[in-house]
């Protein structure tokens, strides 16, 4: 699963790290002082590292709960995100992480108690409320069997019923969620793209069927689930891929109980795009004509807003407009 496990000296002797290491007796271990010695150094290549990523076990210093970017969430509440992990086990060609880091190794911050403290403090500052997103710099659940992340963090939100926790994921690692009591203020938001986009650009991601199966189990167990149709990469096939995707999704889930549904077009900061183009000069997606506005790059499309409106109309044949928001 990992080519190497790097461990920061400071966390080497913690029981959480020892337990994690026990799971991988065969994987070579290398001790480092700080994760920055290994991760995101110049002269590293994200694309090459994706061939055999390493796991880095580290301690997170500094701010642990950050203000979410504008338009990230589904309502006007104060929104924050926290990242117990950097990088994702999946390999989606459209992902901005490729342009954000020069390293594809996974950094797992193991000082959960410090995160917990920071989250609790932020919730209290917000009079017990706010929305807290996990899964901005990683997939929330994909490494769950190793990290026990949601096993640890869900109960915290049980203590703050007015604060909301959202896991963004494409993972089917839901065992720990199903094993614990449901809390109503935790949302599991699963991302989907069309079959065609998935097979072209999403590598190592569980199939749409498997993801839907996981969501269905969660929904039947009483968990609140959400759908994220992002990024929408519009092409000459028009609506057809989305008609079949939506039909498949809503045949499996109880649409009325879905917490929220969002869609968002392919967008990324210009600098990230530049770096990704250098990494993947052979990728058709990054050779397409683009437009830029406000520091962001998007694919050039004359009828983008019409197509997006048509996709939304399609969605509204399955859900109510109140359940929907458009990602900025």
């Amino acid at each position: 699963m990992f080519s190497t496990i790097y461990i920061e000296e400071e966390v080497l002797e913690t029981s959480r790290v020892k337990n994690m290491l026990d799971r991988f007796p065969q994987v070579p271990r290398v001790v480092c002082e700080r994760y920055g010695e290994v991760f995101n150094r110049k002269s590293q290549n994200f694309r090459l590292q994706k061939k055999a990523p390493a796991l880095i076990l580290a301690k997170k210093y500094g701010s642990k709960v950050l203000v979410a970017p504008d338009g990230y969430g589904y309502n006007d509440s104060r929104s924050y995100y926290f990242s117990h992990m950097l990088n994702c086990v999946y390999d989606c060609r459209y992902c901005f992480l490729q342009g954000m880091y020069s390293s594809a190794n996974y950094v797992l911050f193991v000082n959960y108690e410090d995160f917990e403290e920071a989250i609790a403090s932020k919730i209290e500052k917000n009079s017990g409320g706010g929305v807290y997103y996990s899964g901005y710099d990683c997939d929330s659940l994909a490494l769950e069997p190793v990290s026990d992340f949601c096993k640890h963090f869900v109960p915290l939100f049980g203590e703050y019923p007015n604060a909301e926790l959202e896991f963004r994921t494409k993972s089917t690692q839901i065992r720990h969620l199903l094993e614990q009591p449901v809390i109503p203020n935790c949302v599991i938001a699963m991302s989907f793209t069309s079959h065609e986009a998935g097979s072209r650009w999403e590598h190592k991601v569980p199939s749409i069927d498997k993801r839907l199966e996981a969501l269905q189990k969660l929904q039947l167990a009483g968990w609140r689930v959400a759908l994220r149709f992002e990024p929408l990469i519009l092409d000459s096939q028009g609506l057809t891929p989305y008609e079949s995707l939506f039909a498949q999704v809503f045949a499996k889930l109880d649409a009325r109980k879905i917490h929220s549904v969002s869609s968002g077009l392919f967008r990324m900061p210009i600098d990230f795009h530049k770096r990704i183009v250098k990494l993947y000069p052979d990728e058709e997606l990054f050779a397409r004509p683009t437009t830029t506005a406000d520091g962001m790059i998007a694919l050039k499309s004359e009828d983008e807003s019409l197509q997006l409106a048509a996709i939304e109309k399609l969605l509204f044949s399955h859900i109510s407009p109140q359940q929907y928001y458009r990602c900025a």
Partner: peptide
């Protein structure tokens, strides 16, 4: 210290 990324399986490694 520098850390050569370990992409090649099948050969043991050491500091």
């Amino acid at each position: 210290s520098a850390y050569p990324p370990q992409l090649i399986a099948g050969i043991d490694s050491v500091a």
